[in-house]
């Protein structure tokens, strides 16, 4: 496994929302999806995933349903709600804005300061 980046505080929620925005997933699926999208560059504490899922569901951003997994076992599937979709859009916008600003600061030539 290549050297992995630590997850920034508070970004896990955003990643989960992004992961389930593509289609319903069970918890393990969310983990795999995030690792897959990040090309294995991101380390996620497996256990911390579930409290986050529960918190998002509690807030009404995602919804869950028991279904059958690909190997015929019962699994709990999460999918994005309308409120979750709005939240994801909003968070993405904020994130981009923030990274732009920070990148702008970090890349500023010394004479510009």
């Amino acid at each position: 496994m290549a050297k992995q980046a630590d997850l920034l505080q508070g970004t896990l929620d955003m990643l989960i929302l992004k992961a389930v925005s593509i289609g319903p997933l069970h918890g393990y699926g969310v983990l795999l999806r995030i690792q897959q999208i990040s090309k294995e560059r991101l380390e996620i504490q497996q256990g911390s995933l579930y409290p986050a899922l529960y918190r998002l569901e509690h807030q009404g951003l995602i919804d869950s349903e028991w279904g059958e997994s690909d190997n015929k076992r019962k699994a709990k599937y999460y999918r994005l709600t309308a409120a979750g979709r709005r939240q994801l859009r909003e968070e993405t916008r904020k994130w981009n804005k923030m990274t732009d600003i920070i990148a702008g600061i970090l890349n500023a030539p010394p004479e510009g300061v």
Binding site: G47, Y50, Y54, R55, H58
Partner: peptide
Amino acid sequence: VEFGAVEARKEEMREALG
């Protein structure tokens, strides 16, 4: 081992539900 302390996680999940 990689999952971590199950009981602690469960407690956090319950807390998430208030």
